[in-house]
């Protein structure tokens, strides 16, 4: 499997250079479902690449399913609603537990302190329970409704695979991470991800890990409680990507970051910024563009 993770590609990206360096000259398939209704406004990317670009149009294709396979979509929507209810319980369980954990850690700055260690375990258990429940809902829906066997979905998926089949690489852009993950998952793209060189950035990078973490410290109402969105596609299991970490996270709050790092361990927290490139297990992009969060919550640049 050839997998290359990039930092955010807006406003300027490194994808054209990376594709050229890897000798990929043929058509590239593009997933921009995270851009939602702007999915097909991909001219800047087409202009920047010398390759032919084949947009897989997952967002638009799912719209067709919404319009024509109403029974299936009703069941899908009901499953998503149940997932939202699970998420509410997860938040109830999680919010105060995270606050307590950060306070306990701040007292000793020692993750081995039994109280802190137990508080971290509680967070991990809540994360695991949420993921287990989410998987159960997805599996039940798949077993009951077999969406990939639905005539319309099968036909659309065949079109997608035909588009993909003539491409030398697959590129997954960022955007709305839930929409991106859900569209890719709905059309069963997981097994296709390892069949050709894969390039992904921002939300596209997040969905390739085994769990997708949502985070933002700079909202109108202050730092939010970072929570899991769902499983990712699991191509990378030792890392949690944090695109735009410098803009979205309070990197001076070491207590919070230390707890976050402990919570996702043994995975590493990796901030990705413009110019970052991760390939073959190492970072080779612009110096300082990849940021590793250490166990004590401090950050250091992972330089090539």
């Amino acid at each position: 499997m050839s997998l290359t993770i990039l930092g955010p590609e807006r406003p300027d990206g490194v994808l054209p250079a990376v594709l050229a360096r890897k000798g990929i000259t043929g058509p590239v398939a593009l997933v921009t479902a995270g851009w939602r209704y702007d999915e097909e406004r991909d001219e800047p990317l087409r202009d920047a690449l010398t390759n032919e670009v084949v947009n897989l149009r997952l967002y638009r294709r799912f719209r067709r399913v919404e319009q024509e396979a109403t029974d299936l979509v009703a069941a899908y929507t009901a499953k998503q609603e149940r997932l939202r209810q699970v998420k509410e319980r997860y938040r109830l369980r999680f919010h105060d537990a995270l606050s307590a954990c950060v306070k306990l850690y701040a007292e000793s700055r020692d993750l081995a302190c039994p109280w802190t260690a137990q508080a971290v375990r509680h967070l991990q258990e809540a994360d695991e329970l949420f993921l287990t429940e989410a998987k159960r809902l997805h599996d039940e829906f798949a077993a009951a409704h077999r969406p990939l066997d639905h005539a319309l979905v099968k036909s659309i998926r065949d079109d997608i695979l035909a588009d993909l089949g003539r491409c030398a690489a697959l590129c997954i852009a960022g955007g709305h991470v839930a929409v991106l993950r859900n569209r890719m998952s709905f059309f069963g793209l997981g097994p296709e991800l390892i069949k050709r060189p894969l390039f992904a950035w921002s939300a596209g990078a997040m969905v390739l890990t085994d769990r997708v973490l949502l985070y933002h410290d700079h909202t109108a109402h202050g730092p939010g409680t970072s929570e899991l969105l769902d499983h990712g596609f699991g191509l990378l299991r030792q890392v949690v990507f944090l695109p735009h970490a410098r803009e979205r996270l309070d990197l001076s709050d070491h207590d919070h970051l230390a707890v976050l790092a402990a919570r996702v361990a043994p995975r590493k927290l990796v901030g990705l910024h413009n110019g970052a490139v991760y390939e073959d297990g190492r970072y080779t992009g612009v110096p300082g563009a990849a940021l590793i969060v250490s166990g004590d919550g401090s950050c250091h640049a992972e330089n090539p």
Partner: peptide
């Protein structure tokens, strides 16, 4: 208005990673 509207009608800020 930012604080009020983001509380009353929160957008998908948490979901966007571009």
């Amino acid at each position: 208005l930012r604080e009020a509207l983001t509380w009353l009608f929160p957008g998908p800020l948490w979901m966007y990673y571009e």
